[in-house]
Simulated assay, not measured.
Amino acid sequence: MPTTLPVPVVFRLPEGWSPADPDKVGAPGVAFAALYPELDDGFRASITIDGEYRPDVASLAEIADESVQRMRELADSVEVVDRAEVGSPDAPGLTQVMRFSAQAGGARRDLVQVQAYLAMLDVNTPNKRAVIRVALTATAAQTDAVIGDFQEFLGTVRPDTGAES
């Protein structure tokens, strides 16, 4: 069953991507999932969004480390190949890229997951912090074809303030 995000967000899917039921595409526990229209050797790239309140003082790097640990419980040969802090003090973020091997679609596959962590602070209560994770998962061979779409998608993710633009 899809979960809800700690703060509402709005975004725009890149052309060709379509929303999918997270449970039906093997992404339980996420609030949103979308699939790329083209298969790569039986695997369809996906974008997922999940998040949680993080009132603790864990840095985004520590939160990203937690994701790596969870991935190691599910996959083999997990390797963080890139990590960078992004954003500003008012809107901090972090990106990381992991390569791993996992059973997916009935076969063992070499996959890449690009994760972006976005911290959203409550302006009225600074210790009320939500962290949203947006992830692209694709085969190693398909990553170059979909990374631009993922970057485009990330550029549209923002808190939903209820104001129309």
Results as ranks from 00 to 15, higher is better:
L35V: 09
G105R: 13
A116M: 02
P6A: 10
V78L: 12
F100G: 03
E66H: 13
L74A: 15
E79S: 12
G87H: 01
R108K: 03
A119N: 02
P2A: 13
P28L: 08
A107Q: 01
V10W: 01
V80I: 15
V114L: 14
P37Y: 03
V114E: 12
V97W: 04
G87T: 00
E164L: 10
A91E: 03
A116K: 13
I49D: 07
V78M: 07
A107Y: 09
S88A: 07
L154G: 00
V7K: 07
A45F: 05
Q151V: 11
I49E: 01
I63C: 02
A45V: 14
S18R: 05
Q113D: 07
V146W: 01
A107D: 08
D21G: 04
P159H: 01
G93C: 13
E164M: 05
A45L: 06
Q151E: 10
A107V: 12
R54V: 15
V146L: 11
V146N: 11
I47S: 08
I132N: 13
V68H: 06
P89Y: 04
V131K: 13
L60Y: 08
D122S: 05
I63D: 12
M98T: 06
A84P: 10
D160K: 13
G29V: 02
I132R: 12
L74S: 07
T139L: 10
A119W: 00
G105K: 14
A58Q: 09
D41W: 04
P28Y: 02
L136M: 08
V114H: 11
R83K: 11
L154H: 00
A84K: 13
V86M: 01
T48S: 13
L35K: 08
P28Q: 07
V57S: 09
M120N: 03
V30P: 00
E52S: 03
V146S: 05
A104L: 09
D122I: 02
G29I: 05
E79G: 02
V57M: 09
M1F: 01
P55E: 02
F43D: 03
L60S: 14
D21M: 04
A34R: 03
D50E: 12
I63M: 09
L118W: 08
V131N: 09
D149Q: 02
A33L: 04
A58G: 03
P8V: 04
I63S: 14
R158K: 12
A27N: 04
G148C: 00
S67W: 06
P159A: 04
G29A: 00
F153N: 01
G106L: 08
L39Q: 09
Q69T: 15
R158S: 13
E62M: 10
V97R: 14
D82M: 15
